[in-house]
Nucleic acid binder design. Structure first.
Lengths: 232, 232
DNA sequence: ACGACTATGATTAGGGG
DNA sequence: CCCCCTAATCATAGTCG
């Protein structure tokens, strides 16, 4: 009777789209409830659409808030807790891949947060009471970004001095004083420009800190830097 | 090969449940993303389980918060806006059933909120920064509850006076002075005791206020009443 | 425990009232 | 627009490596 395979794209036809919406929303809510029942876990789904007056939510506004609450709590704990060193070696090894996945996810979140903050600075987005991202995460992203900018500026400054000191570097220039500017390494500080801001600060060592975004509390900026809103 | 129909109940077997969890979680997230893409709407899903270290969330923590933000905003708007009387008659009629459904949903939410608050009072639950229900909703439920209690107490008081005034009511007693206590009606105030607290306050008239929980800002309590925590 | 596979039940696109 | 039907695609329970 019908033969259309699912084309994963916005359905142009209005009534067709709405029909699909009704059916799939129903199916989705059913799936959430099944997952929750069968596996005994907390889950919620929220659908905001122009088709319904009120947002569709499962299991209920209060139930959803409970899940959200747990979600935020876990997020926070996740950031402050330290890896439990008393875990057995075997168990740790089993958890390794899980950790890896988590780290990857965090990196993605970090990238998204970064983009969001830039959109805020550019006036294309704004923060309100409810969409406010985790302050610690923002702090981390900001520090990463500033640190990277500073490193790059320092590198440029060093380069400038180098050129002044050796106006005609026809031969290979001697290694300049890099100790006072300390970009991680030449490749690291410039590679992937301009958006390599969320790279692991440690560089080589896969530090098993197990939590947070890898933010080191002792981290300091080379020198103060001020974001100039109007310049963007 | 297989022929098991879905049994909608908690899966007892551990590994079986976990396997099902992985598969269904994947399927669920796919469904959300499909719904969102195909119909161009905002949706999010959050799954908190003991199987994953971090909560599983689609589309991303920030994306989910955006939907949540919209969800809360819509909830709030929903409560304060008034029905648009300029809608065409036909369109209104089409919307009627939708409204009915919404009201039913609200009633359910109200019941759940009520139960939640009682659990709070009983010390079986508590409110924190993130699971805090909408203050206006709480206010409404509390006022409903208190109003109902007061009405019932007033009815009992009237009954007591009636008995004192007519110690031997062998014949039908004359109507007592009910004007000063004003329970809605005799049936309404006692019917469904003890949990008819969320009934529509208007009683007969299906007021098309279209928004909120039906809370009337002019609502006043017959007299002050104090919740005694230790008595519960 | 995980990924791949497959038969089968579940979901849904398209069509008609 | 909504409900119902059917055919077709999709999801997943059970199984194996």
């Amino acid at each position: 009777m019908t033969r259309k395979k699912v084309t994963l794209a916005y359905i142009a036809n209005d009534s067709e789209r709405k029909a699909s919406y009704r059916k799939r929303k129903k199916g989705l809510l059913k799936k959430v409830s099944e997952l929750s029942t069968l596996c005994g876990i907390d889950a919620c789904a929220i659908v905001c659409s122009q088709y319904d007056a009120a947002p569709e939510v499962w299991p209920s506004p209060l139930g959803a808030q409970a899940v959200l609450s747990r979600f935020r709590k876990l997020s926070d704990m996740d950031q402050s807790r330290k890896m439990d060193n008393q875990e057995t070696f075997t168990r740790n090894r089993i958890k390794k891949t899980e950790e890896q996945l988590r780290r990857l996810r965090k990196e993605n979140n970090c990238r998204e947060l970064e983009a969001f903050m830039f959109r805020c600075i550019a006036g294309e987005a704004s923060i309100d009471e409810f969409n406010m991202p985790d302050p610690a995460e923002m702090n981390f992203v900001i520090n990463q970004t500033l640190g990277d900018i500073n490193a790059r500026m320092a590198a440029m400054e060093a380069d400038r001095r180098r050129r002044q000191a050796a106006p005609l570097p026809l031969l290979v220039a001697p290694a300049p004083a890099e100790e006072d500017v300390a970009p991680r390494t030449e490749e690291e500080s410039m590679e992937g420009f301009p958006w390599n801001l969320v790279q692991s600060p440690g560089g080589g060592g896969e530090a098993v800190d197990g939590g947070g975004l890898g933010w080191d509390d002792g981290m300091v900026l080379p020198y103060p830097y001020i974001f100039n809103h109007s310049s963007m």
